[in-house]
């Protein structure tokens, strides 16, 4: 009976300590706390999942999306897509809202900073599909939504909202006039 109960507890225990690196082909970003992680999950609206405040189609891109991992029901928070361009993961996951998927990427676990279940998603596929979708659509989506900002250079130099805030508040956020001397001397 004791052995049976021990086996039962092992089966029922949360899988947080499980190793999800098996089968992963995620590329390293050489981050201190990264670990490859390939797993099955359901794509959810984070606000809805946590509070019951739900919106159609997971918020249509306004809201952060999460992954409820099938193995242990842990709520994984994808903070990042696969582009090295200051870009998040919600745009990548939105087409899969409410679907069961497989994802591959990097998990961060850094207790010193409180990083738990923080994920960088590199590719996604609907469960049962053999076709992966790379999580690198963000910049194309941005370009399609900002035709007036077309031009050379990365999106973050051309984004109208960011440009307006820097014009008003400066690069340090202290006020464009207040920090003018610092900015002028910065590259000297």
């Amino acid at each position: 009976m004791t052995r049976f109960l021990i086996a039962l507890m092992a089966f029922a225990a949360p899988a947080a300590a499980q190793d999800f690196s098996e089968g992963s082909t995620a590329r390293t970003w050489n981050l201190f706390a990264e670990k490859p992680a390939f797993f099955e999950a359901r794509v959810v609206d984070m606000l809805c999942e946590l509070t019951g405040d739900c919106a159609d189609n997971c918020g249509d891109g306004r809201r952060q999306l999460g992954l409820v991992r099938a193995a242990d029901n842990a709520l994984i928070f994808p903070n990042k897509n696969s582009q090295p361009a200051f870009t998040g993961a919600a745009v990548e996951l939105l087409p899969f809202c409410g679907q069961d998927v497989e994802v591959d990427g990097l998990m961060l676990d850094d207790p010193d900073l409180g990083a738990r279940n923080i994920y960088l998603v590199q590719k996604i596929r609907t469960l049962g599909s053999s076709e992966w979708v790379k999580a690198n659509r963000w910049t194309k989506e941005w370009a399609a939504n900002h035709p007036q900002a077309k031009g050379k250079g990365p999106w973050f130099r051309r984004d109208p909202r960011v440009a307006a805030m820097i014009a008003e508040d400066g690069y340090l956020g202290l006020g464009a006039e207040e920090e003018a001397d610092y900015v002028r001397e910065y590259h000297e």
Binding site: Q64, F86, T87, G88, A89, W138, F156, D159, I166, D169
Partner: peptide, 22 residues
């Protein structure tokens, strides 16, 4: 962690927020 807060990181914080990072 001390370098990615405050004024030193303000522009990057704008980029990341606009870029959809939580």
């Amino acid at each position: 962690p001390d370098a990615v807060v405050g004024t030193a990181h303000h522009t990057c914080a704008l980029w990341c927020s606009a870029g959809g990072i939580p």
